[in-house]
Amino acid sequence: MTTATRDIILPAEWRDFWALTKPRVMSLVVFTALCGLLAAPGSIDPVIGFTAILCLAVGAGACGALNQYFEADTDAKMARTSDRPLPAGRMDRESALHFGIGLAAFSVGIMGVAVNWLAAGLLAFSIFFYAIVYTIWLKPNTPQNIVIGGAAGAFPPVIGWAAVTGDVTLLPVVLFAIIFLWTPPHFWALALFMKTDYGAAGIPMMPNVKGQKSTRNQIFGYSFPMAATAVLPFVLGQTSWLFGAASVLLNIVFIALAYRVWRNDTTDAMAMKPEKQLFAFSILYLFLLFAIFAFDRMLIL
């Protein structure tokens, strides 16, 4: 047992295993995957479709469990994460590791057998990328951790699409790019008002390494290619004016909030209202953008 976590391990409850899966993060992953599945051309048996989404949810849970296994010591140093099962001493690390590996193997295996092996391969790679490439290599070593690591969270709509079609075409790649470009401004907004926490844990987030001004510049800068990519489904003729208008409106609000972050020069975390507003809206932005996209595609297919 490491010194960063409690010496006495309490018996783990089902709630602790549930917490390992990071259910809030999982909900967004499942939702974007479902949107990719609903937007794909062709049809899928409802039972197979449900199985695909369930496997993806279980795979996302595996990512959360493995991430917390590798970051138990780091989580213990941050107020935001110190009450997670491992740093709080409610579970031993080996249980978290076995749980994460079991979820990963189950989700990929069932996806391959019941759905198709392309979707299973993409799911396996996304789990590997998040748990190993991002958690072990990128996050503790580079302020570009979120930029490159954003790929892990961008796979779900592609997997949902592949579950239906058995292939990957341009449109799911665009969906991947939207989430990939959305991730840096979303997480850097959080990092700005959580700078002290990340600093205490020794994580080289952008505000801690490059400074807050540079981070605000990059948040504002990233919002433009993200917005341009978000309207591509309409520009490519893959959606109607419903999605086109909604995308433009959502992007105007996002850029306006990013502009307020860019103009804000406070170093006081308590006074970072624009950053907190952007972080909160960015979650709503992605939910609405993908929901309207899926609805629009279902209308025109």
Rank of each mutant, 00 (worst) to 15 (best):
T2A: 14
T5D: 09
I8C: 10
R15K: 10
R15F: 11
F17G: 03
P23I: 04
R24E: 07
S27P: 06
S27I: 05
L28A: 03
V30D: 05
A33V: 05
G36M: 00
L38R: 01
P41T: 14
P46Q: 06
G49Y: 10
T51L: 11
I53D: 03
I53C: 06
C55K: 00
L56P: 02
G59L: 01
A60C: 04
A62T: 15
C63R: 12
A65L: 03
A65I: 03
Q68N: 11
D75A: 10
R80Y: 11
T81Y: 00
R84E: 15
R84H: 12
L86H: 05
P87G: 08
A88I: 09
M91F: 03
M91W: 01
R93H: 12
E94M: 11
E94I: 09
S95F: 06
L103D: 08
G109I: 13
I110Q: 05
W117K: 06
L118V: 03
L118A: 02
L123G: 02
Y130M: 00
L138Y: 03
K139E: 00
T142K: 05
P143N: 04
Q144F: 09
N145Y: 00
V147G: 06
A151H: 07
A154E: 09
F155R: 02
W161D: 00
A163S: 10
V164N: 13
V164K: 07
T165Y: 06
V168P: 01
L170C: 15
L170I: 04
V173F: 07
V174G: 00
I179Q: 02
I179E: 03
T183F: 13
H186A: 05
H186I: 12
M194H: 14
T196W: 15
G199C: 11
M205S: 12
M206R: 05
S214E: 14
I219C: 05
F220P: 06
G221A: 05
Y222Q: 02
A228Y: 14
F234V: 07
L242G: 09
G244P: 08
V248K: 07
L249Q: 15
V253S: 11
F254A: 08
A256S: 07
W262S: 11
D265W: 15
A271C: 13
K273E: 15
L284R: 12
L284H: 15
L288G: 10
L289I: 09
F290I: 00
I292M: 08
I292S: 06
A294W: 01
D296R: 08
R297A: 00
R297Q: 02
L299T: 13
